[in-house]
Write a protein that binds this DNA or RNA. Structure first.
Length: 280
DNA sequence: ATAAGGCCCTGACCGC
DNA sequence: TGCGGTCAGGGCCTTA
């Protein structure tokens, strides 16, 4: 599940691999993967372009090309970008191939086909709905308080809403709420200012930890897992305190971690450290 | 305006 | 071993 730390790792590791590389040929095997423009226009426009800048906004990768166009990539659930050698044979999960002039290939693989690409002049059009970047000075406890004010939806659901803060997904939402000692079902607007401050600090700390460990790989098969551009896994799954630790002891108090469903999403928390309702 | 539910997809997993 | 059914879930869209 690529979230902000995984996407940040992708961007950092793609830069040394792709900076200056030129696209020699392009092929789109699953048309829906390319949101815009039409696949034939996409391939025509990207051939001959050189990768020049490497950025990120929320969970979107922003790969800038030498003519000012930006290749925007969202991996969604199971998407991967892989820099593969010349002789690599694309499998059935490979939906876009960019052949580079040095013979290497940039492969977009995605077993569930949820991932998307855009080739656009102005990437802000793609990411215009996103809330503040978690590490930006504009993301303050006060801003978070304002965005949660009056909201009755569970705080877990609001953390997954990219308009509140960009880049948090299911893993880092659960880990943030645990570190902030907040029950996932608490109404967003019910958080006290002290609780919002804890949550704000927890979000930034968890995301930084995730980046420091090169993201989270969840195990399971290679095609469903988060795999870095060179093929390595991340390491943050070793640091999970609640996510996918159902019935295992809470690292703080030893109480078995509980899994529930909040906002149609699997949700993990410690019932002792993250009690329902507003603690006295 | 917000909240909730459906949709896209298919590998993994479960029960028989 | 094989088969059908269910689950997972980010972002967007529709509905209330």
């Amino acid at each position: 599940m690529p979230e902000l730390p995984e996407v940040e790792t992708y961007v950092r590791e793609l830069e040394p691999l792709l900076n200056g590389a030129t696209v020699a040929a392009a092929a789109v095997f699953w048309p829906r993967t390319v949101e815009t423009p039409d696949p034939d226009v996409f391939t025509a426009r990207i051939v001959g372009r050189r990768f020049q800048t490497f950025g990120r906004r929320g969970k979107y990768m922003l790969l800038g090309l030498d003519d000012g166009l930006t290749l925007v990539v969202h991996l969604r659930m199971t998407g991967h970008l892989r820099v593969a050698p010349e002789d690599a044979i694309p499998d059935k999960h490979t939906h876009v191939v960019l052949l580079l002039t040095d013979g290497r290939q940039l492969l977009f693989r995605d077993s569930r086909k949820f991932g998307r690409m855009w080739l656009v002049e102005d990437p802000s059009v793609v990411v215009r709905r996103l809330g503040p970047e978690p590490f930006d000075a504009a993301f303050t406890p006060e801003i978070l308080t304002a965005k949660l004010a009056g909201r009755s939806a569970p705080i877990k659901a609001l953390l997954l809403d990219q308009r509140i803060v960009a880049g948090v997904g299911n893993i880092y939402a659960d880990e943030s709420l645990f570190r902030a000692r907040l029950n996932p079902t608490r109404a967003g607007g019910s958080l006290t200012s002290a609780e919002v401050e804890r949550l704000h600090a927890a979000i930034t700390a968890v995301l930084m930890d995730g980046i420091d460990h090169a993201g989270s790989s969840l195990g399971g098969s290679e095609i469903q897992n988060y795999i870095r551009p060179g093929g390595e896994q991340g390491g943050f799954q070793e640091e999970f305190r609640v996510f996918q630790r159902t019935a295992k002891p809470c690292p703080t108090c030893g109480t078995p971690i509980v899994r529930t469903v909040v906002a149609q999403r699997g949700t993990h928390f410690c019932p002792q450290c993250q009690p329902a309702g507003i603690p006295i």
